[in-house]
C-alpha cells in the first residue's frame, strides 16, 4: 500500500518536472514562431511576445523577394546535412568496429590518436582549413562540407563505447562459422545492433551540420550554393537595417525540417532496438 502511494507520489513528481522542462524547452520556439508573424518594428520595440501579430504574409514577401531562392538553400542544406550524416554514421561505426572487434597491433595507438584529434580546439584549426580550401580552389564545393565527416572522432568514440558492451563476439564468431565475410558481418549484424546508437548520433550530426553557419559562410560564396542558415544570415544583413520579422520566419522555416528529421529518428531512441531484437 505504502509503496503504491510512494509510486503515486513519484509519478506526480515526475510529471511536474517534465511539464516544467517542457515549457522551458518550447518557450524559444513559441517566441520564434510568434516573431515570424510580427513586423520588424514590433520586434525591435518588444523582442519577446507571446501573442502573434499579422505580418506573416509581409514577412514571407520580404523573404521571397530577396535575390536568393529558399528552395535552393533547402536542397543545399539537405545535401550537406544528409550526406555528412550518412557518411559520418556509417564510417564511424566501421572505424569503431575495427577498434572493438579486431585485435591489431596499432589498435591502441590509433584509438589514442582519434581521441587526440577530438581534443584539438577548433578556432585556429579552421583558419588552416579555410586556407587549404581556398588554395586548392575548392570553394563553392559542397563536398568540402560533406566528405570531412568520414573522419568524425567523437562519433567513433561514441560508437566504440556503445559497441563494447552491446556487441558480443559470439554472434560474430557464429556468423563466421556460417561462412559470412567480415564486411558482410558488419553490414548485416553489427549495423542493426547499433541502430539506437546510430540514430542518436545521426540526429546530433544532422542537427549540427544543418545549423552550421560559419564554415559554409566562409567557404560557399556562390549564391547557387548557399545553405538555409546563410540565407537567414543574409536577411540580417547589417545592423543598420535588419528585417527581423523575416529573419524569424527564416529561422522558423530552417528549424522545421530538423524537427521532422528528429521525430523520424527518435523512434529508434524511444523504442530502443536493444539487444532483445536480435533474439527474434
Amino acid at each position: 500500500m505504502s509503496e503504491k502511494r510512494s509510486d503515486q507520489g513519484m509519478k506526480i513528481c515526475i510529471y511536474v518536472v517534465c511539464v516544467f522542462l517542457t515549457i522551458l524547452s518550447l518557450f524559444p520556439f513559441w517566441i520564434m514562431f510568434m516573431n515570424a508573424t510580427r513586423s520588424t518594428t514590433e520586434i525591435q520595440q518588444h523582442a519577446i511576445s507571446f501573442v502573434p501579430s499579422t505580418y506573416l504574409l509581409s514577412n514571407l514577401k520580404i523573404l521571397l523577394g530577396k535575390s536568393f531562392d529558399p528552395m535552393v538553400g533547402f536542397m543545399n542544406s539537405l545535401t550537406i546535412a544528409a550526406g555528412s550524416t550518412v557518411l559520418s554514421a556509417y564510417f564511424s561505426t566501421l572505424t569503431a568496429y575495427a577498434l572493438v572487434v579486431y585485435e591489431w597491433r596499432l589498435k591502441k595507438p590509433f584509438f589514442s590518436f582519434i581521441m587526440a584529434v577530438m581534443m584539438i580546439p577548433a578556432q585556429v584549426t579552421m583558419i588552416g582549413f579555410y586556407q587549404m580550401v581556398y588554395r586548392i580552389g575548392m570553394t563553392n564545393n559542397l563536398s568540402m562540407l560533406i566528405l570531412p565527416a568520414i573522419a568524425s572522432p567523437s562519433i567513433v568514440f561514441f560508437m566504440r563505447q556503445y559497441m563494447y558492451p552491446a556487441l558480443s563476439m559470439e554472434i560474430i564468431q557464429s556468423a563466421r562459422i556460417d561462412g559470412a565475410g567480415e564486411f558482410r558481418i558488419f553490414n548485416t549484424i553489427a549495423l542493426p545492433i547499433m541502430k539506437p546508437a546510430i540514430a542518436t548520433q545521426a540526429i546530433f550530426s544532422f542537427v549540427s551540420s544543418w545549423n552550421n553557419l560559419f564554415t559554409p559562410l566562409v567557404l560557399l560564396t556562390d549564391q547557387e550554393k548557399y545553405t538555409l542558415p546563410i540565407m537567414v544570415s543574409l536577411l540580417r544583413g547589417d545592423i543598420y537595417k535588419t528585417e527581423y520579422g523575416s529573419v524569424y520566419l527564416g529561422l522558423s522555416m530552417t528549424v522545421l525540417p530538423l524537427i521532422v528529421v528528429y521525430l523520424l529518428l527518435s523512434k529508434y531512441i524511444i523504442a530502443g532496438v536493444a539487444l532483445g531484437s536480435v533474439k527474434g
Binding site: 517542457t22 520556439f29 545549423n211 528528429y262
Partner: peptide, 10 residues
C-alpha cells in the same frame, strides 16, 4: 523529443 529541442535551435 521535447527535451532535446533546445539543442536544435541555433
Amino acid at each position: 523529443v521535447v527535451f532535446y529541442m533546445p539543442n536544435i535551435i541555433t
